Simulated assay, not measured.
Amino acid sequence: MNGYGQFCAVARALDVVGERWTLLIVREMLSGPVTFGDIRRGIPRIPPATLTSRLRSLRTAGIVDLSDRRYQLTESGLTLAPVVRELARWAMTTESAALSDDDLDTAALTWDMQRRVDVDALPERTVVLAFEFTDRSPADRYFWLHLSKADVNLCREDTGAPVSLWLRAPTAEVTRWWLGDLTWSQLQKHPGVTVHGDRALQRQIQRWFLRYAFNRSALARMPSA
């Protein structure tokens, strides 16, 4: 028997979405259709074979559809949005799920940043924002965000494009800002954080990002389930 074998609605729900990684895959689709590669970038530590298996199970359960190589939630899948939201609310308000060093992942962080850009707030010209996470190894230390009203791209390699702004900081501090635990001003005042480059752009940068979808301010505006 693979399931819990209980009539309880909670047990039956967990039979479908309770496996490791499953709700994170659902989270990745809450903003719209995504490719297999998009999901991998949003959940960098999931093994490809596991992702394939979970997607197959979600499609069988009628939670996910596949069209033109893009995965999206069905009407049934979209009803899981409050479940994901309330899990986030719980994690943001309890010490039981406090942020730890094991939770810090620069690839996942910067990928979330590139998909939470307010393009209407960007300058008319293309801006390159470079990150140096000072506490990471070379493989996870540098990222480049190419920002324009027409397109937003995250690069792991330097393309040679002129850098408009450099942000040097420990991973934990940038993550805390992204989660809403720090303001941009508080982040800049941290002794391990420096921002270099165009001073006019430095004053604008905090307006370019919508930040984490379930940050404290966003959760406060969302109704409880």
Rank of each mutant, 00 (worst) to 15 (best):
Q186E: 14
V163C: 13
R176N: 02
A200T: 14
R176C: 01
T159D: 13
K189H: 10
H196C: 11
H196I: 07
T171M: 14
D181N: 11
V152R: 05
K149W: 07
A200P: 01
V193G: 00
T171K: 04
N153C: 14
P162L: 10
T175G: 02
D198N: 15
A150M: 06
R168L: 10
V174M: 15
W166Q: 12
E173Y: 01
L167P: 02
V193D: 03
V163E: 11
P170Y: 00
D198V: 08
V163H: 11
H190C: 04
W178G: 09
R168T: 02
R176Y: 04
L179T: 05
R168D: 09
D151I: 05
N153D: 15
V152Q: 06
C155Y: 13
A169V: 12
Q188N: 11
G180W: 02
L187W: 09
Q186T: 09
V163F: 07
G160L: 06
D158N: 13
L167R: 06
D158E: 08
G192V: 05
W166K: 07
N153I: 15
V174Q: 02
A150N: 14
L167A: 06
C155Q: 13
V193K: 02
W178C: 10
L165E: 05
K189N: 10
G160V: 07
V163G: 10
A169I: 04
H196W: 14
E173M: 07
T175I: 04
G160D: 09
V195P: 02
L201R: 00
T194M: 14
P170C: 03
G192H: 01
